[in-house]
Design a protein around this nucleic acid. Structure first.
Lengths: 150, 150
DNA sequence: TATTGTTATACTCTATAACTATA
DNA sequence: TATAGTTATAGAGTATAACAATA
């Protein structure tokens, strides 16, 4: 391919990065808005989702799975603890680690908040046919999985 | 579908929002890193891409197409003007509007920087088969287009 | 009165790195 | 000496709203 052709092959409305930015910001804004309504925010979301999936992780494990910095995890947990949605429990063998657990209140939020998230996801995907939706999610998941292996 | 089934149908690694966040942040980080190397940053990217596509827009038009706030556009243009990549020219009929143009230097950056962006896009898409890549981009573009119509 | 563009200000996020206490 | 977690601090980015100039 010639250099000129290559340049012509690039357009904003066909550029992966731009398209991702647009759709992601819509998804983020919509979910954040719903979380704000119950006094939470998007920064807390990865941690909550992870804890609904598995409790008893250390902060290091939690940070790694949420792909957030360790100091961010500290502050998110501070906020969630202040709201009495999570608690730091003693690690059985290490006195410098904590194990993070949801409180009953934190656990109780799961079904309502996941319903909100699914609602946002569904509404964004609703412009695609059902089998297109599955196709899209599969390809997207494939990209995520491949990049995580790096 | 029962409430329980619905909940079970949600998992982080199959959630549109989460997957978008992961892939988008990779794309953003990679492009930003390359832009930093030439003294630019990701905040300038939408404006530059737009101007390479069409010059002579007002700031309001530019802000709307870049989906940035008007005050953000002011500051991005200040930075780009300081780097002598763009210039604000007088509007022929309105004395409160400007028309934004690239300088020769700004225009000259196009091919190298778009090559960088295409490189990032290609590397992220490279884990998909060629026809999967086209499929993915088409579905993503369809979602973007549908949402813009709202 | 509404619009274009700029600016002041405050607030949130993020990044760096220093720090304590453990291991 | 390295790791878990916290905190101080600074910088970037973002949002609100006030403002001047113009339409």
């Amino acid at each position: 391919m010639e250099q000129g052709d290559k340049l012509a092959a690039f357009s904003r409305d066909r550029s992966l990065g731009w398209l991702l930015a647009v759709v992601h910001s819509r998804a983020a804004d919509q979910l954040d808005e719903r979380l704000q309504k119950v006094g939470l925010n998007l920064g807390m979301w990865p941690t909550l989702m992870m804890l609904w999936e598995e409790e008893g992780l250390t902060q290091v494990e939690l940070a790694s799975r949420c792909m957030t910095a360790h100091y961010t995890t500290t502050r998110v947990l501070d906020s969630l603890e202040k709201k009495q949605l999570v608690e730091r429990r003693k690690h059985p063998t290490s006195r410098r680690s904590h194990l993070i657990y949801l409180t009953d209140e934190g656990r109780a939020l799961k079904s309502a908040l996941i319903a909100e998230a699914m609602d946002v996801n569904d509404s964004l995907l609703s412009v695609l046919q059902p089998q297109e939706q599955q196709q899209f999610l599969s390809l997207l998941a494939k990209m995520v999985a491949a990049g995580s292996a790096d």
